[in-house]
Design a protein around this nucleic acid. Structure first.
Ligand SMILES: [Zn+2]
Ligand SMILES: [Zn+2]
Ligand SMILES: [Zn+2]
Ligand SMILES: [Zn+2]
Lengths: 142, 142
DNA sequence: TTAAATTATGTTATATTATAACGTTTTCGA
DNA sequence: TCGAAAACGTTATAATATAACATAATTTAA
């Protein structure tokens, strides 16, 4: 959370009470969280919360790289390394719902390489791998 | 289209007139196509078309691997190699909307490797790279 | 070859996710 | 302190997807 404050400071972005609260809620959830889940919580705290309330905060947080959007879940999760730009890469457990952010140089290179060979200029990368996490595998899921 | 018929034959799946038509419509579109776009076309052909009509056909086609879903677009596209199971990997042009399906061994290996190292068993993989295709780059977009 | 079971489709309604549009308040620099 | 920009409030609606139950078509098997 402090790093979020720092980051906003550096970039002249305003981490308002609302935006900060949404970021907190995202971090509190230990798995990816949907916009309307966030909205339900916010409604208990501010009588006026509506969809744009949460979507605007999410847009801000996405823009700054403080959160990622997980496309295959329509859900959001805090970024572990918001200070450096990087692709969105996750291992998503179908059993417990956890999403682990990953950084892998081979993967980055593979994508950069194939895009380059195809003459394609890259703006944004999404890698979402669904399966079962080590924890759940131990407990008998495969 | 013939390969779709063959594939269904092999697997004892019923490629009904409706399912076949939806697959045709997806192939006719030269970019990823949304469920409601398909529905609008179907409504001109069958007075009774409703959302479940198209979503059921899509579910069938997805299940057989005849089409892929592009998560970042909420849209569907025909698979170039439906006869062999493979991850969903696309280069998606932000300008012209084209989505090129890619097969790259380095990428597959990178994902398999990092999942393995993380003790994660893989069920499904999504790679979606957004950017600009060679055609659009030539025409001045970067 | 018919009856039961299965699969596919029709039909109505509703859930879920996301944005448009416009007005008001707050912030911040000139 | 004033004016512009940014943030937020508010209402409405768009876009995507599924639930639930009825009917029809097809397959299986007695
Ligand atoms: Zn991150
Ligand atoms: Zn798990
Ligand atoms: Zn394919
Ligand atoms: Zn293009």
């Amino acid at each position: 959370m402090q790093s979020a404050v720092d980051l906003c400071g550096q970039r002249g972005a305003r981490l308002t009470a609302l935006r900060r609260r949404v970021l907190e809620l995202i971090w509190k959830s230990h798995k990816p969280v949907g916009a309307y889940e966030l909205l339900d919580i916010l409604k208990n705290e501010r009588r006026n919360a509506q969809p744009p309330t949460v979507y605007r905060a999410l847009d801000f947080l996405l823009e700054l790289g403080l959160v990622h959007r997980i496309e295959s879940l329509n859900a959001f999760i805090g970024c572990c390394a918001p200070d450096t730009a990087h692709p969105s890469q996750f291992l998503i457990c179908r059993d417990c719902g956890a999403a682990a952010e990953i950084t892998d140089n081979r993967l980055d290179k593979a994508i950069a390489g194939l895009a380059d060979e195809a003459g394609f200029s890259v703006l944004h990368r999404i890698v979402e791998v669904a399966g079962h996490c080590p924890n759940c595998r131990e407990q008998g899921y495969e």
